[in-house]
Design a protein around this nucleic acid. Sequence first.
DNA 1: AAAAAAG
Length: 487
Amino acid sequence: MSFSHLGLSEKVLAAVAATGYTTPTPIQEQAIPHVLARRDVLGIAQTGTGKTAAFVLPMLTMLEKGRARARMPRTLILEPTRELAAQVKENFDKYGAGQKLNVALLIGGVSFGDQDSKLTRGVDVLIATPGRLLDHTERGGLLLTGVELLVIDEADRMLDMGFIPDIERICKLVPFTRQTLFFTATMPPEIRRITETFLHNPEKVEVSRPATTATGVSQFQVSVGREPHEKRETLRRLLRDAKDLQNAIIFCNRKREVALLYKSLQKHGFSVGALHGDMDQSARTAALDQFRKGEIPLLVASDVAARGLDIPAVSHIFNFDVPHHADDYVHRIGRTGRAGRTGTAISIVTPLDFKSIAAIEKLIGQTIPRADGGAPSGESRAAPPSGESRPAREREGSREGSREGSREHSRGGRKPRREREPRRSGGDRNSPPQPQVAAFTPPSAPPASRAPSIGRTPAPQPSQESSEPADHSHLPAFLLRPVRARI
DNA sequence: AAAAAAG
């Protein structure tokens, strides 16, 4: 199976080849020919399935002919969040490098004027979030009557976010005869209804979605009391003890909590970024960039980061707060274990969260093993602590690429288990000497007094005190904030 | 109960 017989242009094939991809994903293989045949497509797929390229590549092929007129974009892509919009833009930049295509990003939080002047010059591809797009159309700087192809991405999420009325308005502004590509991860009744009005005789393309959680993701829960500081202490300990932790997204339910936890982790010396919707767009972009590049290993985030964001190599997800919606849990932990990799997802659970956890377990059809000792409900303690994710590691065999290969293996302390030193050095070869390590030694301990948690792990945990004051001594170097403060 | 998106 290769890209070459899907009907893509030479230029696009060359661009794909240049990125190193050789085999289309199922959604790409199924959708691309239909898109090129100018059919409407109903795509049921989540991010991580290669969905974005499934529309970007054929669009690039189709756009090779013709050119844009002022204020009249030829194609329009709607995304629920600014970050997703930016991510799609990057795809056009990557695959469309050889084409002199005008691609514009219309999102909130950034200069309106720049966007307007770009529209004036004419754009082939407009990628937008609904609010800012409507802002432009209402001010008259944008005409959608020339749109030949409309992409509605992450439709179910737009529904959750209350965007559907906006989408309906936008759909009235584009020609009835346009081609429409509609992507959604799920098919709730409301979404089914709008597909009937937005799409004309669509080709349905469905890829087996990991309806719940990817198989390569080891999930655990850790019980704590309800005091905020207990959760923070527990998180720090989990971060210190996690095995194979390369980077992690730490989800909170509220923006305020994101800000708070971010500050707390910073105070404790962690190299951490934050991401939520009340931050400046520039700060959002910067945080995400740094996290993607590996400059910052930890990202505290609201659910703005829960869906769709494509960060291929997230090793750990922490739910600092258990999401109240089971769906959100699935989306959050979907940020790890991507592209066949393995990952670990750990939820910090207070007594207030039992109902949510029950709902989550029901949805995903499995129980989430406890990584801690005392199960308040008087249950087992089963699982290995935190990042152990033993099954994942064994399955894995060898780590992907050498990229950051050095970081893992850092665990110390615990049982030696399977020497892998030889491979380690191999893996390090290409990476810069990484400070690191010795780190994950079972640090001078979890607040042993603190009941819950991982405290009782196989490893003998010296019971000392971890007094709130920053105790960096046991942090893996890469988790540490550089001395010279960055901002 | 909260997040996101327009200001």
